[in-house]
Computed example of a mutant assay.
Amino acid sequence: MDPQDLLDLLDDQQARRLRVIENLLRGRKTVSTLYWGQRYDLLYLLSLDKHLARGGLDTVAQTLVSQKMATWLPAEQPQLRLTALGRKQRDQAVTFRPKTQALWPQITLGLARQRLLLSVQVVSQYAHQTARYYPLTTDLATRQAVRQWFHQVKSPELATQVFTALTASLTRLPPMTAQVVTAGFSGYQQPGLTVQQLAQDLQRTPWEVYLRHVDGVVQIAQDARQTDHPLHALLAPAWQTAVTRSAQATLRAVATTDLTLDQVAVQRHIKPSTVREHLLEAAIMLPVTAVPYDRLLPPATRQALLAVLPAQLDDWEYTALPVALQQRFDFFTFRLLAILCDKEGDHHAGTPDD
């Protein structure tokens, strides 16, 4: 990631923790990371760079600071805030905004990407009746899935069907994004270009090219959810719920029974703290309608807390609550209310507290 790429992820009003951005990229789904990812509007970064080392953004961040584009804020963890110069630089740049980013936490990107690239290569070679070629390097599960899919759908019309479907998806994307996706495909007498090669050709950063590639893959996978799409059977398994199966089971138990949270923990043979973590994960990652807020946050609870909390959501601190309220309401209730307020439209910015 280049300094300009990180600049696009920062704000001049809201101090943002570098470790949160780093942990999102690495796929570390702690409740704290997910919550601040929601507050920063950066949840789409989840698991986009699983090989990023801890501290892997430190040098890039320090470059922005040395260029006076951002400042460090003293805190338990490093926080960055854009300067006026940094905001001007960010706003003047032509920033790429992925079209499908809201869907990214719902898809297993590696699975969708590998299956798509290999299937395009197989269909292309099949259309040209090529029996001998070097298939793309993928894992065994991908090779088996593509082989099974191909034998199920193989027909003289397959190449035309796939070409038509891919063209329909790519026309929904910006021209440069479509170019990135198509140039990355391997096929008959065409080796796919790497992100680095495309970045050099297009005079863009590798990170922007990678985001464009992801945008295209997700658009194709989204269109393939239609049952008559030629890639439907191959790409449908890539879609997942945004929360873990265990969290889904916890949410279902809370939503469909009258059990207390501690009783749910006993029933599910997990810790009471895990029940609360599951519910917070679901509240962050799922629509408001999926969580029984009326049960977990009765009107009286909301009124009592909102009466003393600051107007700006990022200024909320549990430890700043009156002792009497801390004794009545645990941190889970406090954080759940913050998640709900954020989803209902409170987008004020301040300084994170935890």
Rank of each mutant, 00 (worst) to 15 (best):
L10A: 07
L10Y: 03
A15Q: 14
L18A: 14
L24H: 04
L25Q: 02
R26H: 01
G27W: 00
R28E: 04
Y35W: 15
D41M: 00
L45R: 02
L45N: 01
L46Q: 10
D49R: 07
G56D: 01
L57D: 03
L82C: 03
A84Q: 12
A84P: 12
A93I: 08
Q101C: 15
L103V: 09
P105I: 09
R113I: 10
S119W: 05
Q121F: 08
V123N: 03
Q125M: 14
A141C: 09
A141R: 15
T142Y: 10
A145M: 02
V146N: 11
Q148K: 10
K154N: 09
P156A: 13
T167G: 07
S169V: 11
L170E: 09
P175K: 13
P175M: 13
T177W: 00
A178G: 06
A178E: 01
Q179F: 15
T182V: 06
Y188A: 03
P191Y: 08
L193Q: 13
V195S: 00
Q203C: 09
Q203F: 10
Q203R: 13
R204D: 04
V209E: 05
L211S: 00
R212A: 01
R212Y: 02
D215L: 08
G216I: 04
A224D: 05
A224R: 07
D228A: 08
L234F: 08
T257M: 06
Q263D: 08
V264D: 10
Q267W: 06
R268W: 07
K271M: 11
P272Y: 08
V275P: 02
L280Q: 09
I284M: 14
V291S: 04
V291L: 12
P292E: 08
P298N: 03
P299R: 07
D314G: 12
P322L: 11
F329L: 10
L336D: 10
L337T: 15
L337W: 14
L337P: 08
E344Q: 11
A349W: 13
T351I: 15
